[in-house]
Structures are given as structure tokens and as C-alpha cells.
């Protein structure tokens, strides 16, 4: 074996790549969570994905558009003209669908639905405190059906 670490950058980079790749194989639970994620594909196939477009936890707040305070986290999801806006506090989630339609909202973790509530005629709904880990809301109305991007809320 020659000099180590390699004197040339290419050699060092190549060894670094090998080291990071074999840094142990990701813990099995991490791989398992990855494999399991595919099962959600078919579940969501008929739903449009409402992309996460705003999260007060990490995005600068557009002036005057949100009412969130220090203890409230506000998020918005968009799918075309449909907006799902929610506020998360220690006591639970309140949300509003736009365009306002009655219907129902199903809250899910990767293990399945954990809560289902009615949406009132002006689009408001409320849910209990979210569990830890990524959560997805399915908003089902007579006019549209969307699924929010997975995001940890707890």
C-alpha cells in the first residue's frame, strides 16, 4: 500500500466516497421506512398532491397574510386553485379549505388514518393534536380531493 491519505485530491475524494458509502449502511429501520413509503403511492393515486408552499416554522412570513403568533405554526398547501391552510398549536389543528366546500378531512400517519372530521360548509375543520412524525391530510369534497404533502407537524 502506498502513502495514505492519498496525496492527490482525486484519490482522496474517491476514498472519501467509499468511506461515506460504507458508513454503514443506513440503519435497518431507515431502509425499512424507505421501502414502506411506496405503499402510499396507490393510496394517493386518485388524489392531487397539494404541495407545501408555506411553513411559518422555516419560511419568512408574507407580511399581513398570516395571523400566526409565537406558539402557532401556520402551513399552507396548494394544488392548483385549491388551498389547504392549517394552524397547529398545542391544543390541535384548525384548518380551512379554499374554495370553501363542505366535506371531510382524514388525517393520516404512514401507519394509516388516525382521525377523520367533517368540514363545515365554509371550509373550516379542526383536528386534535398531531402525532409525531410525518402527517398527511386528505381533503375530500364534492368538487375536489387533495392530499397534502407529508410533513411532520408534532
Amino acid at each position: 500500500m502506498g502513502l495514505w491519505p492519498p496525496a492527490d485530491d482525486d484519490g482522496l475524494l474517491s476514498e472519501l466516497g467509499a468511506a461515506l458509502r460504507d458508513s454503514g449502511p443506513p440503519p435497518e429501520e431507515f431502509l425499512a421506512a424507505g421501502y414502506a413509503a411506496l405503499t402510499w403511492r396507490t393510496v394517493d393515486a386518485e388524489l392531487a398532491i397539494a404541495e407545501l408552499t408555506f411553513d411559518s416554522a422555516c419560511d419568512p412570513e408574507p407580511a399581513g397574510l398570516t395571523r400566526s403568533t409565537g406558539s402557532t405554526r401556520a402551513l399552507a398547501f396548494h394544488a392548483g386553485p385549491v388551498v389547504v391552510a392549517i394552524e397547529v398549536t398545542a391544543t390541535g389543528i384548525v384548518g380551512q379549505l379554499s374554495p370553501a366546500r363542505g366535506g371531510r378531512v382524514v388525517a393520516r400517519t404512514p401507519h394509516g388514518p388516525y382521525e377523520e372530521v367533517a368540514v363545515d360548509p365554509v371550509g373550516f375543520f379542526s383536528l386534535g393534536p398531531p402525532p409525531s412524525g410525518p402527517v398527511q391530510l386528505h381533503a375530500l369534497t364534492s368538487d375536489y380531493a387533495v392530499a397534502t404533502s407529508w410533513v411532520p407537524l408534532g
Binding site: 429501520e29 431507515f30 403511492r41
Partner: peptide, 15 residues
């Protein structure tokens, strides 16, 4: 673990 799981769920949506 939450980030890892979220990323794979997002990739499924993104595929």
C-alpha cells in the same frame, strides 16, 4: 428518523 421517512414519502409523491 422523521426526516428520513418524510423524504421517502415525498419521493413517492414526486416519482
Amino acid at each position: 428518523a422523521d426526516v428520513n421517512q418524510t423524504v421517502w414519502l415525498r419521493l413517492v409523491e414526486h416519482l
